[in-house]
Design a protein around this nucleic acid. Sequence first.
RNA 1: GACCCCUUCGUCUAGAGGUUAGGACACCACUCUUUCAAGGUGGAGACACGGGUUCAAUUCCCGUAGGGGUCGCCA
Length: 469
Amino acid sequence: MTVITRFAPSPTGFLHIGGARTALFNWLYARHYGGKFLLRIEDTDRARSTSEAVQAIFDGLDWLELGHDGEAVFQSAGAERHAALAHQLLAAGKAYHCWCSPEELSEMREKARAEGRPMRYDRRWRDRDPAEAPPDIAPVIRFKAPTDGETVIEDLVQGPVRVANEQLDDMILLRSDGTPTYMLSVVVDDHDMQVSHAIRGDDHLTNAARQTQLFLALDWQPPQYAHIPLIHGSDGAKLSKRHGALAVGAYAQMGVLAQAMCNYLLRLGWSHGDDEIISREQAIEWFELASIGRSPARFDMDKLISLNGSYIRQAEDGGLISLLQPLLADLLEKAPDEAQLQRLEILLPGLKPRAKNLLEMAENALFLFLQRPLTLDEKSAKLITPESRVMMAELLTELEALEDWSETGLETLVRGFADSHSLKMGKVAQPLRASMTGKTISPSIFDVMISLGREESLGRLSDIAAQTP
RNA sequence: GACCCCUUCGUCUAGAGGUUAGGACACCACUCUUUCAAGGUGGAGACACGGGUUCAAUUCCCGUAGGGGUCGCCA
């Protein structure tokens, strides 16, 4: 059997990390078995669906590099077929008209709640004579669900889950305006798209029982279900706006790499022994539903960021530079030129281990792009004293005579300079760093000077040394 | 409230009857060192509780407690 999975978000909000993980798991499962990964936009609630949200879903999946097979399916496009099936069920006696108004239903629920009874539809129109229908109300079509026995879902993550059929109510298939509900549409679409495995959040677990009954009523085979636990906020509560940035795009903007995001999401609820850093290829090879945990996981920003740092360190220079360019252009308010980019490329190995996200990295690299003379920040300005100016002036003279502008050349010279003045390296390196970067923190000062190049380095140093009072 | 699911360090997790209960993040020390990181070494830190089953339970079963989810003409 060919494995066909699908990601079926509703475009009523942005793609959040829970949805992203669901997409990732479906994608990995399909890839692992050489199957297909389909995308279906569940827009049957046309009032709440927006094209911005649809775009956000596409963008999010794009960023995570979770491409789908074939064209994305818009659920609303199948409305006619969905409605036809509802009428077919009606004709077969497996569904019925219900003339309850929304007001009547909420009254019913209120009363049930007050009396401590289950808040389900009481099936009042199931066996009632349609002749009694009120003339002013357009009816809905409800599913005539079995009232006894039980429905068992052989869930690939949760194991067998048994639900007594009396717990399930007669769900609405077709609204009073004739449009199909989600419950009907998923069943029809999963069947039509030949979905073999439905991997989704476990908030759908009870829906799986309802949907299974619908599949049976239609004489169809339900897909295999795998309900994965939800992701919670750091406080253990359901993930919500309170927890801050939730759309995957927000993480991208924070300078998180897509690979880090995927790796983090993968490890949230899934594991492969003690492995932590897992490449896309390994993930495809190792992924299986059996190793998904059954308990909900909390979102931990620290771990995401730590993972991000590790992916930044591993990242290829070229890719990093192209990700950094727009950020730098933003900070500089103009695009960096070739020569400046050259400096960035040279310093990249020194920059990588010092940044946890791309934004931080761009900020750390910013000094490379600044025009002389540099404005020193508060801390580094304090390092420039009358004494250190004199020292920098002397050092400048020695550096000007240096022929070997390399790490060893520079280090030998500066160390020798410090020794001959009976100074610790730090005493010399810090003012030097301030002169080169305008900051007290940077990659190795020698790497910085190499990246800046001889001319710029000497220029920056003379800017400081020349100010001797 | 009813039904369903869950419970190993603070967090993510390994474990699938007998382990000094392992790893990662965070934390603390030390180390490296021109700053800051990164790296290296070490440390502290967990089987929710109560009953069973068993020679032996973190592991199997049943309760309790706690957490989560679902009960829409939303998806």
